[in-house]
């Protein structure tokens, strides 16, 4: 029952909760337990900034089963405003509009739906900043 595994991850998946080292200030996403891998310091969970910029990206044409109805879709390598780097799907953007360096903001979207159970998995995606 993957629904249960994914339920356990929901808070950090919905809200960009990461890990921050209390000593050196390094931040990671997704969060992880234990000591900071950079300096060995104690870590705590923090809510990460919702804005960032696009470092690199790909347009996925051959998709895994759970995402096969979403393709082609864009996955970005994103640096949040505090320096945390992560991968996330981009949304509300056409392939021709993607530019390395563009400003993005987090939003909540459907990631995929389990075919048999119909269970919907929501999570963070990034879109061009709306203001």
């Amino acid at each position: 029952m993957p629904e249960i595994t994914e339920w356990r991850d929901r808070i950090w998946r919905y809200r960009l909760i990461g890990t921050k080292c209390k000593s050196c200030g390094s931040t990671y996403y997704p969060p992880r337990n234990g000591k900071c891998f950079r300096c060995g310091g104690e870590t705590e969970e923090v809510e990460l900034p919702r804005r960032g910029k696009l470092l690199s990206y790909t347009i996925v044409y051959q998709a895994p089963t759970l995402y096969k109805h979403s393709s082609p879709y864009i996955v970005g390598y994103i640096e949040l405003s505090n320096g945390t780097r992560l991968f996330a799907m981009l949304t509300d953007i056409e392939p021709g509009e993607v530019r390395v360096g563009m400003e993005l903001e987090a939003t909540l979207r459907r990631l995929y739906t389990y075919g048999d159970s119909g269970h919907i998995v929501y999570g963070v995606k990034f879109r061009p900043v709306v203001e």
């Binding site: 790909t58 996955v75 992560l86 996330a88 990631l111 999570g123």
Partner: peptide, 19 residues
């Protein structure tokens, strides 16, 4: 990381290539 971002193995290689 991979499942929630939609990143595939080839997708990650593509990002590395572009970088």
């Amino acid at each position: 990381v991979m499942k929630y971002s939609g990143l595939t193995e080839a997708g990650l290689a593509a990002i590395l290539t572009r970088l």
